[in-house]
Design a protein around this nucleic acid. Sequence first.
DNA 1: CGGGATGGGTTTGAATTCCCAACCGACCGG
DNA 2: CCGGTCGGTTGGGAATTCAAACCCATCCCG
Lengths: 156, 156
Amino acid sequence: MAVRKDPRPCSIADALAVVGEKYSLLVLREACLGNGRFDQLVRNIGAPRDILATRLRRLVDAGILTKHAYSERPPRFEYRPTEAGLELEPVLMALKDWGDRHVRGGADLPMTVRHSCGSELVPRVTCQACGEPVRHEDLTAHAEAPGWTVAGPTAA
Amino acid sequence: MAVRKDPRPCSIADALAVVGEKYSLLVLREACLGNGRFDQLVRNIGAPRDILATRLRRLVDAGILTKHAYSERPPRFEYRPTEAGLELEPVLMALKDWGDRHVRGGADLPMTVRHSCGSELVPRVTCQACGEPVRHEDLTAHAEAPGWTVAGPTAA
DNA sequence: CGGGATGGGTTTGAATTCCCAACCGACCGG
DNA sequence: CCGGTCGGTTGGGAATTCAAACCCATCCCG
């Protein structure tokens, strides 16, 4: 799915080139949940088996999953998130939050996540420096490489 | 791209069904940057025009973009993020951060974003309740709807 | 030992998408 | 009138995806 001719050098595009293909993030969801076996992935995601096999190869190659043998004889594997994969989990949580609020009505959430602090997780993307939530109107983009021109005063 | 037979009710899957198709999040990136005109999108994203047209229709239908006329005679349009679209921008930032750190080496970032607090934005996904960064080992998933079974003690 | 189930895939052929290039209509500028 | 811009649409071939079937080694059961 690698965006063929992305004219802009951009880490968002780079990230999507790795995890932006169909099912990839759902595979990571399941891997993070501990459901990393091939047939679990097939059942829980509903992806065709061949597609799943290619995604898994790609995610392993990209260093997001590792293929871990949980049994020799017969050889059986489980796909587990690497450190890089685990660091993608907050993105997944932020996406889940957005989906909770904007796609699903906001009520009757199919699944919740509890944080170790004791309360139910409500993920917020914040600025590390000041701790404030990241809001569009507080952002300004700056080009560091050629290819970037920004029209308005808005930022991404 | 709606995942055809997603066996799990999941807000992540729901969100991806809307913005998970190829180019969709890059379109939103450009819209947030203020580069919302059709030919700007074509140039900056590098997507085929017909695909872009389909994505735009879908994003407008989903309430993520609006088609705003910036000129009558000749009729010219600009796609702008709605409130829901703007609320997806933090996810984009979190994704950019991951890409910065894991796909790109970590150095020579093509673009940076400044936060209104004065420092360069380093987005962190935090727990709203306690303010701590969201880390995999602090999470536990809980099923609220049928379809959910989690294998390990891990969580997503 | 035979017979079925399980796990982790690969193969096949049809259906769907994507991609590219060309085209179009409305307008403007010279 | 002629070229250029903008915002698309159209057509046809290339690439992906899909569903279902198949494969193969290994248990499990009797």
